[in-house]
Design a protein around this nucleic acid. Structure first.
Length: 517
DNA sequence: CGCGTTTGACCCGCGC
DNA sequence: GCGCGGGTCAAACGCG
């Protein structure tokens, strides 16, 4: 009798879960429709803007940057760099609508990134199921196995400039090196000029033939900042814990390698070109729709392109992310021979540090799990706001939230969902959360705090009609998603952003396969 | 003993 | 051509 009763109960529960799933699907469809409508609107608006900017561009006599000389500066945290703060405060050019509040606007006019133009502008073909790491792999594996330099090497370098792309990561870290999950062997140390701190040279030892090297150096301006520069791409399977950083760096590098076919002319270096536009293109129905990224600047240089991911905390005190001087390059802290592009994903909050390297590990603050601060992430209004009120994230004072325009959220969503490179960066960040959670909750049940926290992070999911069963359902959904994501990023090195909130809104065919319903 | 680090020497590119 | 500086090599050394 008891068994029968339980069977009936389970049956009823199953029915409820099915109903809930049904509701969720309807809700998802609705959101997708709304998203498509909004995206279409955005396209129209952007198309108009593009026409205007193209006209301006044609009149612009500034020389194009050299493909080989790009240093992209991605600030995923909040940089304490005074230079950045100063530049930001100086900025005067009004922001583009699409970038409002996001720090995703364009600064570097000639640096255009497009997932669609990757194949054209780069020798590295985009790989659908491999992370951008793979793309870099192809470039790097062309290197001679011997580290000795020779004429052939130089030839290859010239033929394949993308191969020398570097990714520099700036993080606050007390330990001598940050633990990125990979195995490194130190093979040299040098005192670089202008920096009292020695620069250490490491080689990847996971595979004896792995060409990847990294340089670790303290920032001369702020000793607490560790600058790790990665060069090359692993030609082997990465440890799970290493995938996050690897995909982050490769994604960033891919931004460069997928860069401008439009910057073909190798003009002479000109500081005036520093204020250029950094375009992320939205891929929508085969049309390229750039998103503008502020805090980006490029100085032409013949040197190898370097991407800098700034994961330090940013002490922006300005209330507007657009009050920077667009004519001012951000290259002051970098050698002038490198061009720089700064992609600033910083939060404007002064007390929230989403990413930190503590004890040598790449960590998101526990109390901010999954909180990717693109501008004022805490203020993802509408669907987010009620969620936040009900379940404010620990450590994030909701009372001090900045007001974020709805179109800012839309722009962010589009940026995330439309550009694979951007997605990869985010995916890497998320992967780091996931892998960390996996480590921290080994053997834990499906309803571990990790999963719940991750679920909490995604407002779309959390805003779904919720019942007690629905919660179970959503949690399962999230866990499955996350498990799939982890698998994707580990095994296949998926290039797409494995973010539930994004996925639910994505309409691109490339990402549709990631939809989990 | 094996592995990783240290460190001085060497190589090479670049600017003058 | 020369000097400088970044990057790499490899012997010596230290540690488990």
């Amino acid at each position: 009798m008891q068994d029968e009763m339980q069977f009936e109960l389970t049956k009823a529960e199953l029915g409820e879960v099915r109903e809930e799933n049904q509701r969720l699907r309807v809700h998802l469809d609705q959101i997708m429709k709304e998203y498509q409508t909004l995206q279409k609107k955005f396209q129209d608006v952007y198309h108009q803007q593009q026409e205007t900017s193209t006209a301006i561009k044609h009149n612009d006599k500034r020389p194009q940057i050299n493909d080989e000389s790009k240093l992209v500066f991605l600030s995923l945290g909040r940089s304490s760099s005074m230079e950045l703060v100063k530049k930001d405060k100086k900025c005067s050019t009004p922001p583009t609508k699409s970038a409002e509040g996001l720090d995703l606007g364009l600064e570097c006019g000639k640096f255009e990134m497009s997932s669609n133009t990757q194949a054209e502008s780069s020798v590295i073909p985009p790989s659908p199921d491999n992370s951008l790491e793979e793309a870099k792999d192809e470039a790097v594996t062309q290197k001679p196995s011997t580290p000795k330099r020779n004429a052939d090497d130089q030839e290859v370098l010239q033929q394949n400039p993308a191969k020398k792309t570097r990714v520099s990561v700036r993080v606050r870290c007390d330990t001598p090196t940050m633990n990125d999950g990979c195995q490194w062997r130190k093979y040299g140390q040098k005192i670089a000029k202008g920096n009292p701190c020695p620069r250490a040279y490491y080689r990847c030892t996971v595979s004896p033939t792995c060409p990847v090297r990294k340089q670790v150096q303290r920032c001369p301006q702020d000793m607490s900042i560790l600058i790790t520069t990665y060069e090359g791409t692993h030609n082997h399977q990465l440890p799970v814990s290493a995938t996050a950083m690897a995909s982050t760096t490769s994604a960033a590098a891919s931004m460069i390698t997928s860069g401008p076919s439009t910057s073909g002319s190798n003009s002479t270096p000109n500081p005036s070109t520093s204020s250029q536009r950094l375009n992320f293109y939205l891929n929508e129905n085969s049309k390229l729709k750039p998103i503008y990224l502020p805090h980006s600047s490029i100085t032409p240089s013949p040197s190898c392109p370097t991407v800098t991911l700034d994961l330090t905390s940013n002490t922006f005190s300005t209330s507007s992310p657009y009050n920077y001087n667009r004519s001012q390059p951000l290259t002051s802290i970098f050698p002038p021979r490198y061009s720089t592009t700064n992609l600033n994903f910083s939060s404007l909050e002064s007390n929230a540090t989403p990413i930190s390297w503590t004890n040598g590990s790449f960590n998101y603050r526990e109390n901010q799990m999954g909180s990717l601060n693109f501008g004022s992430t805490q203020t993802q209004e509408n669907i987010y706001h009620s969620f936040m009120q009900n379940k404010p994230m620990m450590g994030i004072p909701t009372t001090t939230q900045h007001s974020l325009q709805p179109d800012t959220i839309e722009a962010a969503t589009r940026a995330i969902t439309s550009n694979p490179n951007f997605q990869s960066v985010l995916q890497a960040a998320l992967t780091s959360i996931i892998s960390r959670g996996a480590v921290g909750s080994q053997g834990a049940s499906e309803k571990s705090g990790q999963a719940v926290k991750l679920g909490d992070t995604f407002p779309v999911l959390s805003s779904f009609p919720s019942t007690s069963n629905a919660n179970k359902c959503s949690t399962t959904f999230i866990n499955k998603s996350m498990a799939a994501n982890t698998l994707n990023s580990q095994a296949a090195g998926s290039n797409s952003l494995q973010c539930s909130s994004s996925r639910s809104k994505s309409t691109s065919p490339e990402t549709s396969r990631d939809h989990v319903v």
